[in-house]
Nucleic acid binder design. Structure first.
Length: 664
RNA sequence: UGGCCCAUGGUGUAACUGGCAACACGUUGGUUUUUGGUACCAAAGAGUCUAGGUUCGAGCCCUAGUGGGCCAACCA
């Protein structure tokens, strides 16, 4: 029963190292610090999973801290939504805290800094300060207020706090180094005047601390041991540490900031600002629209906490920029639902089927298994009668023998019922099929290739089904410098249809999840009323049949594969091909050689020449160079000394492949 | 005229102090199946961005280059 030991990710390694360097396990503490300015999305699920996951792993407390230092953007609505989402994911936080709880402490510390000559009030316009700040490549210069006296700074800062000044007229900034190579260290702003109502402190304050001044000190106040955030905060670490140095008591825990790469999902965006834009512009119906990558959207769509947790866990933690394919997310939700979701029958695109040898007034309630993956799920009854609906795509008048569904003269099984044979079709004047006429046989033991789902017309419930496609048509919609992400909106991301479901679904409650057999997983949407059942399609079943057909009615298929991947230089590809050349079987060598010779046409001599010095032991590379050189010579390149030396050395090599290649 | 971070199959993540590059998704083929689902079996796919170095041995260490990302909000 030895639990297989999973390799540790780099953050866990850091913690293990701290532990082995004497840190007590009891001192471990983490936090998840969202700003309540929007809804959480699946990217946050990773951050949540990391910090709360560590908490579970080490049995350490994890705080939920709202980073609410900017009243202009933050609202109680978001606080509530965030709490709901974190709880739904199944995580329990130790304390619910707010950065605004620390406003007074932060203010007191700021005064200490002023007194120590490490902070000053600047009274310039933001433009003037921006100018003095320099650029990443140019150092900044000191501003005119940098050397105000402590007394003056104290006085000004107090008056800022008392509301005597207008917004924008003064700020408090740390006095660090305007020439510092890290822009963030060039006298960062600590406080600005904001005459705004704060969702928790009301009108108590009219100066608000900035992120950098707040975050590390808050971690310290909470005695967080490891403060984990995403990579774009890496440059902030230096400032985080500087601010900590000003107030730290060496007897207490000093929090460590460490950074990981944020999660990106293909075909969607992960920025609160842009998500808000989708909501505000009406492209989606709110933050919890099932097409949104928000936790609330995914929840409404039918995703389970388990699936989401599994997903971020599988995606892993590292420092490399990444774009995870949605297929992994879909795999996780299918895996979870396959085990749990009861099976039912529903027809989304109905075609009438009449069983001519079944009595008109007869009906039978047949036994159907609820879930063959779960023995405890039991059985239910489904009604059968003379007139049924089947899926339009399940019938073709004529089809090859790779088509396992119903065709004229062919036999097929009706799930949970009988075997039928299609005898004839009834069409309208335009040749559209109106009905299929079949005969049935009660002998169900026969082997047939196909099994169709169906509903009895007389008994079926008419419902609304919402099918979703990806919101964007591009794999990485917000990674194009020249185009706006809104340009890639998929106009057909929502399809609403009328469908027919078996009567057992009458009792379905909002949120219930089902597998519509052969179609996919669906859940009951919030919009459902007592009159009208509404289903969301969570995700389709894997469908290896659909893949074989040409695109047809498959808008869901991968659109195209022209990835943004930049083209590698021909010479680089040649080198790579060359490296493994000697290990290849002869047939492959010929193919690779042709490939190299093709690539060689776009290689210049200047690119090739440095490779003449390739180490003798790297034969493959030298062979590739020889091949490329051959092409260039053929195209009129004149021989020079370097070329001759290369050829000479190669000709006397012990490798025959190489020798052959320099027989120009 | 900068600083910091990153580079392993199509995607994501591994590879304990250097020792035949693994796992998952995806792809392909097969077996089972009253879901063209699930389960199971198998296969293909990278030799680790490039060059040089250290070493008996480098994805892991060193140097230089290349490519990508982040940093100039009174946002977080």
């Amino acid at each position: 029963m030895s639990e297989e030991k999973k390799p540790l990710n780099f953050i866990e390694q850091i913690i293990e190292e701290d532990l082995s360097n004497g840190m007590s396990k009891n001192d471990l503490r983490f936090r998840f610090p969202p700003e309540p300015n929007g809804y959480l999305h699946i990217g946050h699920t990773k951050a949540i999973g990391i910090s709360f996951g560590l908490g579970e792993k080490y049995n350490a407390p994890v705080n939920l801290r709202f980073d609410d230092t900017n009243p202009a953007k933050e609202e109680q609505e978001y606080v509530d939504a965030i709490k709901e989402d974190v709880a739904w994911l199944g995580y329990k936080w130790d304390k619910e805290l707010f950065s605004s709880d620390y406003f007074q402490q932060l203010y007191d510390w700021a005064i200490l800094l002023i007194k120590a000559g490490k902070a000053y009030v600047d009274s310039q316009s933001s433009e003037a300060m921006a100018e003095q700040k320099g650029t990443p490549t140019q150092p900044g210069v000191d501003g005119p207020f940098r050397n105000r006296s402590v007394a003056e700074n104290l006085d000004l800062f107090e008056r800022m706090k008392n509301g005597e000044f207008e917004e924008g007229s003064h700020i408090l900034r740390a006095k660090i180094d305007m020439q510092h190579p890290n822009m963030l260290m060039r006298d960062p702003i600590m406080y600005r005047i904001l005459k705004r109502h704060h969702h928790r402190t009301g009108n108590d304050w009219c100066i608000y601390p900035m992120y950098d001044w707040t975050h590390g000190e808050s971690d310290y106040l909470e005695q967080v041991s490891h403060s984990l955030c995403s990579l774009e905060f890496k440059p902030h670490r230096e400032l985080y540490d500087w601010f900590l140095d000003q107030v730290i008591n060496p007897d207490l825990i000093r929090p460590k900031q460490r950074e990981f790469a944020r999660l990106n999902l293909s075909y969607t965006i992960m920025s609160k600002r842009k998500l808000l834009q989708l909501v505000d512009s009406g492209i989606v119906n709110g933050w919890d629209d099932p097409r949104m990558p928000t936790i609330s959207g995914l929840r409404r769509r039918g995703y389970t906490p388990n699936a989401l947790r599994k997903f971020v866990e599988t995606a892993g933690v590292a420092k490399r920029d990444n774009v995870i394919d949605v297929s992994l997310l879909e795999f996780c939700i299918r895996e979870d639902l396959n085990k749990a979701a009861p099976r039912v029958m529903a027809v989304l695109d109905p075609l009438k089927l009449v069983i001519t040898n079944y009595p008109e007034d007869k009906e039978a309630w047949l036994e159907a298994e609820n879930n063959q993956e779960d023995a405890s799920a039991g059985f239910r009854k489904v009604p059968f009668s003379r007139e049924l609906y089947i899926e339009k795509s399940d019938f073709k008048e004529e089809a090859g023998n790779k088509f396992f569904r119903l065709k004229l003269g062919g036999e097929v099984r009706l799930k949970n019922a009988y075997i039928i044979k299609a005898e004839s079709v009834k069409k309208d004047a335009n040749g559209n099929i109106l009905e299929i006429h079949c005969t049935y046989s009660e002998d169900t033991s026969k082997k047939v290739k196909g099994t169709l789902h169906w509903v009895s017309i007389k008994h079926a419930i008419k419902v609304e089904v919402r099918e979703y496609d990806r919101l964007f048509m591009d794999e990485a919609p917000d990674s194009h410098q020249d185009k706006d992400f809104m340009d890639f909106i998929n106009p057909n991301s929502l399809k609403t249809i009328e469908a027919y479901v078996e009567p057992s679904l009458k009792e379905a409650k909002i949120g219930d999840r089902f597998q519509f057999q052969r179609l996919g997983y669906f859940n009951v949407d919030n919009d459902t009323t007592s009159e009208r059942l509404i289903f969301n399609k969570t995700v389709g079943l894997r469908d290896s049949w659909a893949k074989q057909k040409p695109a047809q009615n498959n808008p869901n298929q991968k659109q195209q594969n022209n990835k943004p991947q930049q083209k590698r230089k021909a010479i680089d590809v040649i080198q790579q091909l060359g490296k493994k050349y000697t290990n290849l079987p002869e047939i492959k060598q010929q193919k690779v050689k042709a490939e190299i010779q093709e690539l060689a046409k776009s290689v210049t001599y200047e690119e090739l020449e440095p490779l003449f010095n390739t180490a003798a032991k790297k034969v493959g590379t030298r062979i590739a160079v020889a091949m490329t050189l051959g092409v260039l010579l053929n195209n009129g390149l004149e021989r020079n000394e370097n070329i001759n030396i290369f050829i000479e050395k190669a000709s006397s090599d012990s490798n025959e492949l190489l020798i052959n290649e320099v027989k120009y």
